[in-house]
């Protein structure tokens, strides 16, 4: 696909908008021109202030009369064919703490007008049951909070997860077979009037990924980088570029279902490429967790298999030597603490 194709589709789609939205193909009678209706729009953005697609939005007229839609690639939803007046608007798949109204604005006269009739339906509400989720490899609170419609902190701070939080410390480092309690989802609606556009924010999504680069102990600051993200469902994600900050950090937003991040650092002959599996680091109190951190810190780990073999012990010894720790090749508390400090989680 090329920009020419995108431009073509945009142009032809604009041309198609000149066609009637009221006349059906084959119709022999024209619709009543006197039936004036109204519209209402919503826009949803994420933590990075960019549009969020595929968010379920519900407009409710009464207990049994609802309209549901999903945001498009521009984070937008539009409801046509409404009678002038007030309704209830919600991101019905999300918990009350996972979204908020950030502003509202009147639509232009042209956008506020509509025709036809909205097709109200009686949708059953989404499940609100508490779930005990058994964690599998690659899952973390951010990913699971997105999947179940929560703000990540709501799940992590939920009293039922206190013990897990105490043992794992970091919400994005869970171990397979950990149990994360997903609370019962709580509804929230906001009043909405026809003729307005409501700007809503999905909280906590996307998450921020930070990767730090050092060379000979010094931050690789002010170095150009480009980051490409792949996701579990192979969606198309925009590459991001920038310059490392004064402390050598690359900082980018990543969608919650991101599986890998490829960082291309620098240009020309010094360019290097690094690939990271996201959400796949095990807790520091496991051998695999230690192996994963050592590997990402540049120590030679042949297999991340959870076995404290000769290769792993050699890497631990080298790490201990580098950090003036007692060289034992064993995973003692001082080694774990230093490893955690260096890996930053």
């Amino acid at each position: 696909m090329t920009s020419t194709l995108a431009e073509n589709l945009k142009t032809t789609d604009q041309a198609a908008q000149s066609q009637s939205s009221q006349h059906a193909v084959g119709d022999t009678a024209a619709p009543c021109p006197l039936k004036q209706r109204h519209a209402l729009e919503a826009r949803v953005i994420g933590e990075d202030d960019k549009p969020l697609a595929d968010i379920g939005v519900e407009l409710r007229k009464s207990a049994t009369e609802k309209l549901r839609a999903k945001t498009d690639a521009n984070g937008a939803v539009r409801y046509d064919g409404l009678q002038a007046g007030g309704y209830q608007l919600s991101l019905y798949e999300l918990d009350q703490e996972a979204w908020e109204l950030i502003k509202q604005e009147p639509l232009t006269d042209a956008l506020a007008k509509s025709s036809g009739d909205a097709g109200w339906q009686d949708f059953s509400p989404p499940s609100r049951e508490k779930i005990d989720h058994l964690v599998i490899e690659g899952e973390c609170v951010t990913k699971l909070a997105d999947r179940y419609g929560f703000f990540p902190d709501t799940v992590w701070d939920w009293p039922d997860n206190a013990q897990l939080k105490q043992s794992r410390k970091d919400m994005n480092v869970l171990a397979p077979e950990d149990t994360l309690v997903i609370p019962a989802r709580r509804d929230k609606e906001i009043p909405a009037q026809t003729g307005n556009r409501y700007h809503l924010k999905r909280k906590g999504i996307p998450a921020k990924l930070r990767v730090r680069f050092l060379i000979a102990g010094e931050p690789r600051d002010n170095v150009p980088y480009m980051v490409s993200i792949t996701t579990l469902d192979a969606q198309t994600v925009a590459d991001q570029q920038g310059m490392t900050d004064a402390k050598g950090f690359v900082s980018v937003f990543v969608p919650p279902n991101a599986s890998t991040a490829t960082v291309v650092l620098d240009k020309g002959k010094w360019q290097q490429t690094y690939e990271f599996n996201l959400g796949y680091i095990d807790p520091i109190d496991t051998v695999r967790g230690v192996q994963g951190r050592l590997r990402d810190l540049g120590y030679a780990i042949e297999n991340e298999d959870g076995i404290l073999d000769e290769n792993t012990q050699a890497a631990i010894q080298l790490f201990q030597l580098d950090h003036q720790l007692k060289v034992t090749g064993e995973i003692d508390q001082a080694t774990r603490d230093k490893l955690k400090e260096k890996f930053l989680s």
Partner: peptide, 26 residues
């Protein structure tokens, strides 16, 4: 380039939105 990487003693740390913490070379 990966050979150069080892020679450079490059340190990579990653986290999900943690405060900066200047580390030392391994």
């Amino acid at each position: 380039q990966y050979d150069e990487l080892e020679e450079d003693e490059l340190l990579i740390a990653n986290d999900w939105d943690k405060p900066n913490d200047l580390g030392q070379t391994p």
